[in-house]
């Protein structure tokens, strides 16, 4: 049984077909990539999986449970978390609180505990804070814990976003162009980081990427989209030599 099972996923914006008949069976522990030119509908696929848009047609099943119709926060709580193409941190909030916010669904104290700040809440919050620091340490971010997120350099902000996503305890991590705006050195480090957290947290990863270098090196399986349709899929080797891909995507990229 695949961890994520997508069948016939289709989405229209008004008359515009953004995604058409997208299928995917993602096994636990895999790392697969989704590539395609700008406007191919890649991010829309993520938005459909995470419940930001409701698909026009098709089914999405995670761990055997249907996701269509659930609200985004419910889907994340089930174990799918994402990062955003353009960084969406909570800017005027400390890095630590960016991470602590993501513990929301794991909080056991109820609202009355919150209003009366009961010992139960205080001790739980302390544990969450420790947990948040632990996550920040993994990403080498602990020294920024009390800094406002918006004051961090770009690369650090990207790492905070991944750390924040991990705080939701996902089984499946969706990364939307994690390497955008990075130089080759930074991309190498990012690849190491992705591999490391994948092992450490036992993650399944599904990533959208523009940087072919990264996708070709770390993904074992790649899907290619163009104009909402899946035009090719296979191993990096197969993709590299697929004429349709070359025409639609690589040709444009190589210039």
């Amino acid at each position: 049984m695949a961890l994520l099972h997508i069948n016939g996923l289709t989405h229209y914006f008004g008359g515009l077909r953004a995604v058409y008949d997208f299928n995917l069976a993602l096994e636990e522990g895999e790392l697969i990539g989704l590539i395609g030119p700008n406007g191919a509908g890649k991010t829309t696929v993520f938005n459909l999986i995470t419940g930001i848009y409701r698909p026009t047609k098709g089914t999405i099943q995670f761990n055997g449970q249907n996701l269509v119709g659930l609200q985004p926060h419910q889907i994340t709580a089930k174990g799918i978390c994402r990062t955003f193409q353009t960084i969406r941190l909570f800017n005027n909030v400390s890095v630590l609180d960016n991470v602590r916010i993501a513990f929301y669904s794991q909080v056991r104290s109820n609202l009355l505990d919150a209003f009366f700040r009961t010992p139960h809440l205080v001790s739980e919050d302390k544990a969450l804070t420790r947990e948040a620091y632990r996550l920040l340490e993994i990403f080498n971010l602990e020294r920024y814990a009390q800094e406002l997120a918006m004051n961090l350099p770009y690369g650090e902000q990207k790492r905070v976003e991944i750390a924040r996503a991990l705080a939701t305890k996902p089984r499946l991590l969706l990364l939307d162009e994690p390497a955008a705006g990075m130089n080759p050195g930074e991309i190498d480090r990012l690849m190491d980081l992705i591999q490391r957290i994948r092992q450490e947290f036992g993650l399944t990863i599904f990533l959208i990427e523009h940087q072919m270098r990264l996708v070709m090196r770390i993904c074992r399986y790649i899907k290619v989209m163009d104009f909402g349709e899946t035009i090719a899929e296979g191993t990096p080797e197969e993709i590299r030599t697929n004429p349709r891909v070359l025409q639609a995507y690589l040709g444009e990229e190589v210039e």
Partner: peptide, 14 residues
């Protein structure tokens, strides 16, 4: 506070 900062990201963070 997360709602103030970014509602969509807040939802995405449960």
């Amino acid at each position: 506070i997360a709602i103030r900062e970014d509602e969509i990201a807040a939802e995405a963070m449960t």
